[in-house]
Amino acid sequence: MYAERSETRPTSADSVEARAAASPPALSQIAVRGRSVLALVVAPEAPLDDWLAALDEHLASAPNFFAGRPVIADLSATHAGVADPAPVLQALSALAVRNIKLIGVEGIDPALLSHTLWNRLPTMLRGREAPREVKRGRASQGRAAQPSACSLIIDRPVRSGQSIVFEGGDVTVIGAVASGAEVVAGGSIHVEGALRGRAIAGVTVGETARIFCRRLEAELVAIAGRYRTAEGWGDELQGRPAQARCERGQLQLTALE
């Protein structure tokens, strides 16, 4: 597989076209792979200043939230149908200043970005909202085909300094999650042991995710961006089996006994 790729690697786009014209079968050797990744979508709202203030607050509590992640800007609310590109450009520069790296924009007429810094950003991205996509994928593939694709089981303790990130579904840890360790899951998190570090659930599925642990001694629990630190729950939960879930936009922690 690797050998085949190195043989057919084109030196430039021009040479590919030239070769294709001369001998059409050569094209079939060029391997173009598709890949689906999970992108975060930010949708600035008017008034922009208020929205940016809320964004800054979010970034202050989670500085690495966007780090290394592909981000798409949904600008449909920003330009509001007018032909003036100023509000759109203002929103894009505000995102750039905050080091949020865009892989594309949507919701606007691409002509608005011509002759600007942003004219090379893809504008024809087609994707589906993540939760819906997860459900559809499961239904069409059939459950038996890939039963393990939606969960990850960690058969050992998660040690201090380690980070388990699984955006594809639920994470189950057989053992403790140590102080200074973190588990990030697209879905729910189950800790069959003491949860002493951080558990961040619902990165993909949102508020339907939950966190369960045999012993709650966590530093932080979060679901769909709502979080609580150890100071946020009382003595009566500390050290007990507990679950965390979202209820009407609030993070609720209850004992499981």
Partner: peptide, 11 residues
């Protein structure tokens, strides 16, 4: 806690 970190590195 530091020892826990070390055990993770040993693994």
């Amino acid at each position: 806690r530091d020892s826990d970190r070390i055990i993770g590195l040993l693994d």
